[in-house]
Design a protein around this nucleic acid. Structure first.
Lengths: 147, 147
DNA sequence: ATATCTATTGAGAAAGATTATCATTGCTGA
DNA sequence: TCAGCAATGATAATCTTTCTCAATAGATAT
């Protein structure tokens, strides 16, 4: 485990921000659901099991902070709400498979895009710092259904 | 020109939908600004120059229809609003370069992703029907600035 | 042309996610 | 203990998009 609860706490506790019980609870939830791509609302629901009186605004504020600290990645899958994912220590580039039927989101590892980024730099003078690649289609469970 | 105003009108006039003056004005604007990636609000502002009394709801409704008819592509660049692009006759796959400084959006043609889609099918059983690829970085004009 | 039948429209309300406001709470350090 | 200040919770506000509904306008038959 390269980003368990203890390490996340350390990343947050750098003097700039206080380690409060609300923030601890949020980190705990993120850590317990590493592989899901939760929305703010989903995180909110789960944090309230640990800290029932937390406010939604605190969730949003904390997610902003964690994103600034590069503890979290904010992603947009086009469903009208942001989703969050823990940043891994080794920045393994991966892409997302979004099922158009059941909405499931899974991942593919891949680094094939480096050559493409070079082309973009060379031919368009565009300096790439990040990319987003999403495949839309039907997952293994859904591809054999009609509708 | 493979998708000028006349052709667009024909695509809309298939019996399922009526060709109204509002819809004509919207098609005109889309046609006159082919290479921009306009939001609904931007389209609204431009259509009002041709048809001042049009309502915003009509813009949204028409963009929905045009998207259903595959005349338009709805895209999400993560800035909190949908953007639209005319579908070209030949489906040349292209990706978007989004400048983090000035917000400009330009395009790269590329088909390098086919092999990746095959891999995704073979190794994950995921049937790809579309993809979204966006590069984030700094365009030629902005890459030499500090902030 | 006229009447008729619907699809379409415009205005405004409503929804849903996110951000801003502000009084209150609770650390922290002298 | 007290002062100072970051953090919090409740709620209002914002922003894009969708919904509702009465009024309008296009197409067709007369």
């Amino acid at each position: 485990m390269d980003s368990d609860y203890g390490k996340l706490l350390d990343k947050l506790d750098t003097g700039k921000y206080k380690v409060t019980r609300q923030r601890e609870a949020i980190l705990q939830v993120l850590c317990d659901h590493k592989d899901e791509h939760m929305s703010a609302e989903e995180i909110y629901d789960r944090v309230r099991e640990l800290y029932p009186d937390i406010g939604l605004a605190t969730i949003y504020r904390t997610l902003d902070i964690l994103t600034d600290l590069h503890i979290l990645h904010r992603m947009d899958f086009g469903d009208g709400r942001a989703r969050y994912e823990l940043v891994q220590d080794k920045p393994h580039h991966h892409h997302h498979l979004i099922c158009l039927r059941c909405g499931s989101i899974s991942e593919v590892k891949d680094d094939l895009l480096y050559q493409l980024e070079e082309t973009v730099d060379r031919e368009h003078g565009f300096l790439v710092v990040d990319h987003r690649l999403q495949f839309l289609g039907y997952c293994a469970n859904c591809r054999d259904f009609d509708s």
